[in-house]
C-alpha cells in the first residue's frame, strides 16, 4: 500500500512516520501533486500556525491537490483544522472540506489551561475510523484551537465545552488528537484508516 504524507512547512512529521513504520508501512513524504494523487492513502499531519501553513499550501497549489483527492485522506491536528472552513488563528480562510469553524479555547475556569495538553476522552464515535475503538477511549491532544461541533462531527471531546475530536465527509477524515502518540487506541485508529476501502 502506498501511503503519502503531505510535506509542507507545518511541523514535526517524524512521529507519524515512526507510527506508520510500527504498523509495517513505509510512507512517502511528498509535496509533488502527482505523487500525492497517486497514493492509496493520504495523510496530512501538522503542528504549527494556520495562516502561514495555508499560505504555503496555496503557493504550491497543494490546496487544490487536497481538494481533488478521492482516496482516503486523514488530516491530523493542524491538518484537520486546515480542512475546516475558517480558523480564528490569525483569521485564516481554510480549505472548506468541513463546514465547521476553528476557534480558540476560552477557559471557563482556572483549571482549564490553554493549550490543552494531555489525554482526554473521545465519545459519540461514528464511522469506520473508530471501528472497535471503545467509547471514552483516551487520546493525546495538544492544541489551543478547536473545531466546533457540526454536521461532520464523528467524535466529540470536552474541554472548555464539547468540540469536534474528529470530522468526516466523503473520503476526508480529520482528527484533532495525535493518533501517532495515542498509545494502543491511536494505533487502532491508524490501522482502521489504513484499512479503509479505496
Amino acid at each position: 500500500m502506498k501511503v503519502v504524507v503531505i510535506k509542507y512547512n507545518a511541523g514535526n512529521v517524524r512521529s507519524v512516520q515512526f507510527a506508520l513504520e510500527r504498523l509495517g508501512i513505509s510512507p512517502t513524504f511528498s509535496d509533488d501533486p502527482e505523487t500525492i494523487l497517486s497514493a492509496d492513502k493520504i495523510i496530512f499531519p501538522g503542528v504549527g500556525e494556520a495562516s502561514s501553513a495555508m499560505t504555503y499550501l496555496k503557493e504550491r497549489g497543494l490546496d487544490q491537490v487536497i481538494l481533488q483527492s478521492t482516496q482516503p485522506f486523514l488530516g491530523i491536528c493542524l491538518g484537520m483544522q486546515l480542512m475546516c472552513s475558517h480558523s480564528e488563528e490569525n483569521n485564516t480562510a481554510c480549505l472548506g472540506v468541513f463546514k465547521e469553524d476553528v476557534k480558540r479555547f476560552v477557559p471557563n475556569q482556572a483549571a482549564e489551561k490553554v493549550p490543552q495538553i494531555g489525554w482526554n476522552t473521545i465519545y459519540d464515535l461514528k464511522t469506520d475510523l473508530f471501528d472497535r475503538v471503545q467509547e471514552n477511549s483516551f487520546c493525546y491532544f495538544v492544541h489551543s484551537y478547536y473545531a466546533s461541533k457540526g454536521e461532520h462531527t464523528v467524535a466529540t471531546t470536552d474541554y472548555c465545552g464539547p468540540y469536534s475530536a474528529a470530522l468526516h465527509v466523503n473520503n476526508f477524515y480529520g482528527v484533532q488528537f495525535h493518533p501517532e502518540k495515542s498509545a494502543d487506541t491511536g494505533e487502532l485508529i491508524l490501522k482502521n484508516f489504513l484499512n479503509l476501502p479505496l
Binding site: 507510527a19 493525546y140 495515542s182 494502543d184
Partner: peptide, 8 residues
C-alpha cells in the same frame, strides 16, 4: 526511543 514508543 521514537521508533519504539507510542506516547509523547
Amino acid at each position: 526511543i521514537a521508533h519504539r514508543i507510542n506516547i509523547p
